[in-house]
Computed example of a mutant assay.
Amino acid sequence: MRIAIDAMGGDHAPDVVVAGALEAVREWKDTTVILIGDKARIEPLVRQAGDQPSNLEIVHASEVIEADDEPVKAVRRKKDASMVIAGRMVQERTADAMISAGNTGALMTTGLLIVGRIEGIDRPALTLTIPSMDGKGMVALDMGANMDASPEQLVQYAIMGSIYRKKVHGVVSPRVGLLNVGTEALKGNELTKAAYPLLKEAPIHFVGNVESRDLLSGPCDVLVCDGFAGNIMLKSLEGAAATIFTALRTEFTRNLLTKLAAAVLKPGLTKFRRQLDYTEYGAAPLLGINGMVLKSHGSSNATAIKNAIRQARISIQSDVLATIKSEINNGNK
């Protein structure tokens, strides 16, 4: 299998992207990783790490889509940007998947304008695995690809999320929940009230409404919401986790006694932090695109890039794309 990576995307590119890619190709010999970006910057990083593995390729790109670029204009005008070239490789089937830690809006635009949508899907959804205390995580979509959604689009998200959860994570009958302000069926705004009966009739295991306060306890395997609510929820969780760990670090370094306590508690705290660490999951796929397109966190480190490649490999091996196409097309007949 061949996985294209936008080597210039992300806060720490290309250094961490190259490092993560090298770790991946050395572990998975059956996978070819294609680093796309400025050869003058990428090749020295590869040489510093030793000989270039035979399953690592470098494709030069003369342009970069920056974090502050306007997505549609950037994708249309920067034809030789690393992200655009990666998208074109997926569209032309010279790569089985692409990964980028760059501009999210531009990646969404690349998916729509270059790779294209799956027939029968109105809007793709950014799909993130949110850590949970049981260690299983929860697939949530949409996390910000679209600010608005219709009830029918939430059903499409639920079907795609269920397929992804089955194929990539091996959950036999994923429980699907609808993000809401209460668990009662009649709670919520016009969107959730209209979506609830449609989700009950959909070919999924729908378990009803889920409140955000319960998310980290793993109330469902797949969480469905519009991109506006999903992105607010995600940023709130990220902010809360960062604040908690900052406060703990401050308290445990306050004096000798607290430092001794920290030494005793360190194994448990390390495990807790790992449970809430996005780098363990690597990347968020854009489900609904007619190709495997995955978004890594902008601040990804080498571990996150390697895990993104692992996630792409599993998605390809599990034939997630073909299963979504089949399920959606059968539902539209």
Rank of each mutant, 00 (worst) to 15 (best):
K200S: 09
P124H: 13
A7E: 06
A262L: 09
G105K: 06
V155E: 00
V224M: 00
A67D: 15
G9R: 12
V222Q: 00
R175M: 09
V25D: 11
P197Y: 03
K306M: 14
A241N: 10
D148N: 14
I5F: 01
V84A: 07
G188L: 02
N307I: 05
A312F: 07
D221M: 07
L216N: 04
T110N: 06
F206H: 00
L56P: 05
P267I: 08
K306H: 14
A4H: 03
K193T: 05
I36M: 04
C220Y: 06
L186N: 12
C225T: 15
G227P: 12
L179C: 07
G87A: 06
Y281A: 15
Y281R: 15
I36L: 05
D226G: 14
K73A: 15
V17H: 03
T246C: 03
V207C: 03
M143W: 07
V264K: 02
L22Q: 10
L22S: 10
S318Q: 13
A74V: 09
I324W: 01
I58Q: 08
E43R: 03
T279V: 07
A304E: 05
M233N: 13
T31A: 10
T246Y: 07
G208N: 00
S132E: 08
A241F: 13
A284V: 11
M1N: 12
G137M: 13
L178P: 00
N290W: 06
A284H: 12
A125H: 07
K266Y: 14
A40L: 07
L265M: 15
N146E: 11
D11L: 09
V46M: 05
I289R: 03
K259E: 01
I324F: 02
L198G: 00
L56A: 04
R26V: 08
H169C: 11
L215R: 06
S100W: 08
A158N: 00
S318D: 05
A194I: 02
I34Y: 05
D38W: 00
I314T: 14
V59N: 02
G230Y: 14
A247I: 13
M138Q: 15
L191C: 03
T110F: 01
I121Y: 04
N290F: 08
E251L: 12
V155T: 00
V72K: 03
K187G: 02
K39I: 05
H205T: 02
A194D: 09
N301G: 10
G144Y: 07
S236N: 07
G120S: 03
T250Q: 10
G10W: 07
Q156D: 13
A185H: 02
V293D: 13
M83I: 09
D214Y: 10
E201S: 00
H12N: 15
N189G: 11
F228Q: 09
C225L: 13
T32D: 11
G102H: 14
S300A: 15
V168E: 04
P131S: 12
H169I: 08
V222A: 01
P53I: 04
A195L: 03
L113D: 06
S315F: 09
E66L: 15
V18E: 03
S82L: 02
L223K: 12
L45A: 04
I5Q: 04
D319I: 05
E27I: 05
A40Y: 10
K78F: 06
S54R: 12
I324K: 01
V155C: 00
E63G: 03
G135W: 11
L107C: 09
V171I: 15
L216H: 08
N189W: 01
G177H: 02
T94K: 12
V171Y: 09
L237Q: 14
S62K: 04
V84S: 04
G87N: 04
S315G: 15
E23R: 14
